[in-house]
Structures are given as structure tokens and as C-alpha cells.
């Protein structure tokens, strides 16, 4: 029992994920700065931001719905944390797993976006409402490619459990290469999910200030921000588990370091992507996702089906 609490609250649960989230944010910001030929923030900057926000006043707008407004950051925080438990990190076995946990993880990862939407919508400010509308429109654009891109490897493995998928790819390492296109698609979708350039449309600061989070301040904003950081880690861990399923059999120490490297590699790819392109417009983003990314994901699904048919024969 104590072990379970330890796992949930400290390692690899709440505390570890929060610290890793802040660390990943630092890594992302520092790398971005380096790529832009800047110096970048010092290592404690994300933590300092978090602590500073905790100390700030919590302002709830008069016209906002206080219940929804305050509930949403907590919901985003817990949803990402829960999703983390089903992802295999440094061993083939996740903290908890059952057949179908892949679907649960994907849905839990959708919840933060929904909380942005609800939080922004119930803040009743024009900027946050436009941001909320945009984030929900964007959700429909990237979610399907993401699901398809992750479904294809799952179908290949013949299971909907993430832990069993890692076991399958452990015994068929060469099939990972087949998923490379899906990896790229999932990365693009993850950019949309994390609202990073070129898909930072819901929080485009030069257009709608901070989008859904415009009215948030103090502790609530701090929790939203750490939830976004954690979402980045969880999303990257998911991609690492599905598309980079190697190095699970070397014991804890090496496996753990490999896990960190894999997640930071995915984060680095996201940072690189956001430094080399401009932000798209919402209509362009929808076009891009539906006309290029989603068909590509479908095509890969078909390819995977064919390959699976050939192998099983």
C-alpha cells in the first residue's frame, strides 16, 4: 500500500513528473534560445516562475464562473498525471496496465485541451473566448491524425495495451522503422496538442494575448503552466514508448537514463520544429491537418495492415 502511494505521489508520480516537467521546460527554452543564438534562461527559471506565480494574487473575473474557472487547472493537472501511470517508462511494464490503456491515455491527454476550452470559455473575456474556440477547432484537426498514427503501431502489435506493445516491439525491433512516418505525424499532432509554433494558434500572443489563459493568474495559472509542462513530458513519453521502444531490458539505472534521453530527444525535436517555422492561421492549420497529415496517417494504417498480413502469413 505504501509502495503504491510512493509510486503515485513521489516516484514516478507527482513529484517526479512535476520536476521532470519543469526540467523539460527548461530544456526546451534553453535549446530554443541556443538555436536562436541567444543565451536563454538559467536552470531554475521554470521553478522560479512557478513559485512566483504561487505567491501572486488569484484574480477571478467578475463575469467568470468561479467553479469552472478554478476547477479547470486542477483537472488538467490530474488528467496528465493519471495518463502518466499507464505509459511504460524504463521497463516494459507500466505502473498500471490493462488491455485498452492506450485509448485511456489518449483520452486523458485530450482532457487538458478541454480544460483550456472550458476555462477560457467560462472566463467570458473576448480574448479567452476566441482562444477557447480556436483550441477546440484545433483539437478536431490534430486529434484524428494523432489517434491514427498511434493506432497503426498498436494494430501492428495486435494489442491496445502500451505495455504489451513495448514487449512486442522488443521482440520485433525492425518493425519500428516502419513506424517512422507515423512518428513524424504524431510529432506534428503533438505540436498541435501542446500548442507550440506553428500550431500555437489558440494562444497566439500577438493576436489574442494568451488565448484561453488570458484571465488566469496566480496559483491557477501556475497549475495550468505546470500541467502544460507535464503534458509535454507525458506526450513525449507516449511517443517514446510507442515509437522508440528499445532499451527496456537493461535494468533500472540504464533504462531510466535511456528514458530521459528519449523524452528529451522528442522535446528537442519539438523545440527545433518551433524555431524554424512561422505560426499558421487556423484555416491553414485545419487544411494542413486534414489534407496532408490525416491522409498520410490513413495511408500508413493501410501499409501497416498489409505488412502485418505479410508477416502473419
Amino acid at each position: 500500500m505504501i509502495n503504491v502511494f510512493f509510486n503515485i505521489l513521489i516516484f514516478p508520480g507527482l513529484i517526479f513528473l512535476s520536476i521532470f516537467g519543469l526540467g523539460a521546460e527548461y530544456f526546451d527554452r534553453k535549446l530554443c534560445a541556443k538555436l536562436q543564438n541567444r543565451v536563454g534562461p538559467p536552470w531554475f527559471q521554470p521553478l522560479a516562475d512557478f513559485i512566483k506565480l504561487l505567491a501572486k494574487e488569484n484574480v477571478i473575473p467578475n463575469q467568470a464562473d468561479p467553479t469552472v474557472f478554478t476547477l479547470m487547472p486542477v483537472l488538467a493537472f490530474t488528467a496528465t498525471l493519471t495518463a502518466f501511470f499507464y505509459i511504460p517508462l524504463w521497463q516494459t511494464k507500466a505502473l498500471s496496465s490493462f488491455n485498452g490503456d492506450l485509448i485511456v491515455v489518449l483520452y486523458l491527454l485530450t482532457i487538458p485541451t478541454l480544460t483550456f476550452f472550458l476555462g477560457g470559455w467560462y472566463a467570458r473575456s473576448v480574448f479567452s473566448m476566441i482562444g477557447a474556440a480556436r483550441s477546440i477547432i484545433q483539437l478536431f484537426a490534430y486529434e484524428i491524425p494523432l489517434f491514427l498514427a498511434i493506432l497503426a503501431p498498436a494494430m501492428m502489435a495486435g494489442t491496445l495495451s502500451l505495455s504489451e506493445m513495448t514487449v512486442f516491439y522488443g521482440s520485433h525491433p525492425w518493425l519500428v522503422l516502419l513506424n517512422l512516418v507515423d512518428f513524424v505525424i504524431a510529432l506534428v499532432a503533438l505540436l498541435g496538442k501542446l500548442e507550440k509554433t506553428p500550431f500555437d494558434i489558440p494562444e497566439a500572443e500577438t493576436e489574442i494575448v494568451a488565448g484561453c489563459l488570458t484571465e488566469y493568474s496566480g496559483r491557477l495559472l501556475a497549475f495550468f503552466r505546470i500541467a502544460i509542462d507535464m503534458e509535454m513530458v507525458v506526450g513525449s513519453s507516449l511517443l517514446a514508448a510507442v515509437f522508440l521502444p528499445f532499451g527496456f531490458n537493461f535494468g533500472f539505472a540504464i533504462g531510466f537514463i535511456l528514458y530521459l534521453v528519449k523524452v528529451l530527444f522528442v522535446v528537442a525535436l519539438l523545440s527545433l520544429a518551433r524555431t524554424i517555422v512561422a505560426r499558421l492561421r487556423i484555416d491553414q492549420m485545419i487544411n494542413f491537418c486534414w489534407k496532408i497529415v490525416a491522409p498520410a496517417a490513413f495511408l500508413m494504417l493501410v501499409v501497416d495492415l498489409v505488412v502485418k498480413g505479410l508477416i502473419s502469413r
Partner: peptide, 22 residues
């Protein structure tokens, strides 16, 4: 094509930052 600046961006990784730490 998209990502036209990638070459210079990656080169910056190995350059000293242009910022002077005033």
C-alpha cells in the same frame, strides 16, 4: 519548402550566443 532556416538554426547550436551579458 517549410523549415528553410534549419541549416542556420542548427549551426547556431555550436555558435557562441550573440547576447552580451551586460
Amino acid at each position: 519548402r517549410p523549415g528553410r532556416m534549419i541549416k542556420q538554426v542548427l549551426q547556431s547550436l555550436f555558435k557562441k550566443p550573440a547576447t552580451s551579458l551586460y
